[in-house]
Design a binder for these strands. Structure first.
Lengths: 146, 146
DNA sequence: AACTAAAAAGCAACATTGTTGCATAAAATA
DNA sequence: TATTTTATGCAACAATGTTGCTTTTTAGTT
């Protein structure tokens, strides 16, 4: 994958927002850019920090919520009370989430990755339980930290 | 499984605390009792409510932390910023967690269950990643709500 | 049973995180 | 460019989590 120029990212951002019927605003562009600029997932706090104190906290909350509602990003549950958000891949934005990949949290660098090629396994539930969604989060050491 | 009397639960609580080298105090007994009295997992907030405003919030935080440290309870990651805590089964308290079961969150009643009989599956990670712990959370409808 | 050292609980103050209503500003549409 | 719709910023608030310190309770000892 070749590194994109700023201009390329910028137009990619506009396109993504349009595709999801969102008006193009400063905060949405900036936050979406943060997601595109890096591989892992971002917590609300990360975004506030990296946005460079340009946006109100409320705006960040509302923007993230909008992105989740529109299917642009998905949430990743954690055990430390800080939901992570990650960009959905192409298949998501069509309306139904393609949420069948697993997530990986590195215990060293604390980065969160979507392992898009690893499909969630089948789970055999006891009688009476029915599954709507399966979330798999693997904790360990990532390829950059070993 | 037959319903236990209060006295039975009470002595079970003392035993559990002793086994984990914890001094026996009012809040620890009460909180442990809450866990034993019900099947699912509890969030910090649940405990504050059910304890009947008897304990300081700080005490609840510290007690839960102690329980996690000693391996009496384990945490369950969620996507709504409210960590759930659940009692570990016997095998845990020996020192190393027997954390190979999956968790189930009911989208109707919002209860969280440990499905102790459902073992976490093997996950084939990409080259370079190594797993230390695998967490599986299934969301769906539980046997009481369908 | 009383004494003592260690540990936990309670309290107050604070820090962080998340929410709501409303006025203002910016974007989309005509 | 004017108008409508939508998003942002601000202020105030609510909820959640943390820290230091004093008082109380527990467990061990005499």
């Amino acid at each position: 994958m070749s590194k994109q120029t700023d201009i390329q990212i910028d137009s990619q951002v506009d396109e993504l927002l349009k595709k999801n019927n969102l008006s193009i605003t400063g905060s949405r562009k900036k936050i979406l850019q943060l997601f595109l600029e890096q591989t892992g997932a971002l917590a609300h706090g990360d975004i506030e920090k990296r946005a460079g104190e340009k946006f109100d906290r409320v705006t960040v909350y509302r923007t993230l919520q909008t992105f989740v509602d529109k299917g642009l990003v998905h949430t990743i549950p954690t055990a430390d009370n800080s939901i992570r958000y990650a960009l959905c891949k192409d298949e998501c934005s069509q309306g139904h989430h393609h949420d069948h990949h697993i997530h990986f949290v590195c215990s060293q660098c604390n980065n969160t990755y979507c392992l898009d090629d690893v499909v969630t396994p089948e789970i055999n539930l006891p009688k009476g339980y029915s599954a709507e969604h399966i979330e798999v989060v693997v904790e360990g050491v990532c390829k950059n930290c070993r």
